[in-house]
């Protein structure tokens, strides 16, 4: 207990406290000006929104990846298992550059771009087509190009791809041990009691995985919130549209506005902490049966 607290203080709490102290030197008005300007507000929406989305998508596909890795034997399984960890090991800037190279218009996956958003005509006029136009035809009145981005690299979809990439291992690695423990006996018991495959999935397996799934989601979400290196390369960083909050912090630092930077950092910190706390409470609730 003593050791844990000391260690945690040295490594985590002291640096964080420094951010608060630095910020406390600001006047209230200056603080509000720094953390609530339209450009910063827009970056919160981008950062939290896309991180949340990436976390959810990772939770879903991470579950499938973990399931297959645990339950099915296939050739090259160990290699695939190792590949899952790559986003952990890769310097994030490398990931960002690699993803950008692939998804940029002249990259391998550049052909996706017209299918997703639209193309820019030689006169600079944007021609909507593809998915964004399709959504617009079903739900008119929403500026889908603004929400989803027209391009893939250098736009919001790029941010989403980068954040999904770096978050996946968290979900897979938290679920794997739980899945390994979840013996087929549970499914068989459910089957002998007359449950269908679907009932077994959602009444027996899913509830037992839920706590680990939430942990994985939380880790992936938190990682996405703080991610900087890979995103800046692929985001395009258009003010009010595809700037993430960590980027704004760096921008302020580069302008020697240290107080402004720490102010945003404090907001990011408090919000993340609140969210993580809420998720933890949720998780406790799903684990209520494990308390003896």
């Amino acid at each position: 207990m003593g050791f844990t607290l000391t260690y945690l203080s040295l490594i985590v709490l002291v640096p964080l406290a420094a951010a608060f102290i630095k910020t406390s030197g600001m006047t209230w008005d200056a603080f509000v000006e720094a953390v609530a300007s339209p450009r910063v507000m827009a970056s919160y929406r981008v950062s939290f929104g896309i991180s949340l989305l990436a976390g959810l998508v990772n939770a879903f596909f991470g579950l499938i990846v973990a399931w297959v890795l645990v339950r099915y034997p296939f050739p090259g399984k160990r290699i695939v298992d190792a590949i899952v960890d790559l986003p952990f090991a890769l310097p994030t800037a490398v990931a960002g550059i690699a993803l950008t190279a692939i998804y940029a218009r002249n990259g391998w996956a550049g052909f996706l771009e017209p299918l997703w958003g639209g193309v820019v005509a030689p006169d600079g006029h944007v021609v909507h087509n593809g998915f964004v136009q399709y959504l617009g035809s079903i739900f008119p009145g929403v500026n889908w190009g603004e929400w989803l981005g027209l391009k893939i690299a250098f736009d919001r979809p790029g941010i989403f791809i980068a954040l999904t990439f770096i978050g996946l291992p968290f979900v897979v690695r938290t679920l794997q041990p739980v899945l390994e423990e979840l013996e087929p006996e549970f499914e068989e018991a459910s089957a002998t009691l007359g449950a269908t495959r679907w009932q077994t999935m959602h009444k027996v397996i899913f509830p037992q995985l839920l706590p680990a799934l939430i942990t994985g989601f939380t880790l992936s979400f938190a990682r996405a919130l703080g991610e900087y290196g890979s995103v800046v390369f692929i985001a395009g960083n258009q003010p009010l549209h595809s700037e993430i909050t960590p980027l704004l912090i760096i921008t302020k630092l580069e302008q020697y506005d240290y107080q402004g930077a720490t102010a945003i950092a404090v907001v990011l910190l408090v919000t993340s902490f609140t969210l993580l706390l809420l998720i933890n409470l949720l998780q406790n609730w799903t684990r209520r049966h494990q308390r003896a």
């Binding site: 013996e183 549970f186 018991a189 089957a191 002998t192 509830p207 037992q208 049966h289």
Partner: peptide
């Protein structure tokens, strides 16, 4: 298995941990 009308008790019981005893029995 589900349609054979067998009751199967597993070696390690395979009780569903997230359900109460009554919910398990009622499953």
């Amino acid at each position: 298995a589900g349609k054979r009308g067998v009751g199967f008790v597993f070696q390690h019981y395979a009780l569903f941990r997230h359900m109460t005893v009554a919910e398990n029995v009622a499953f």
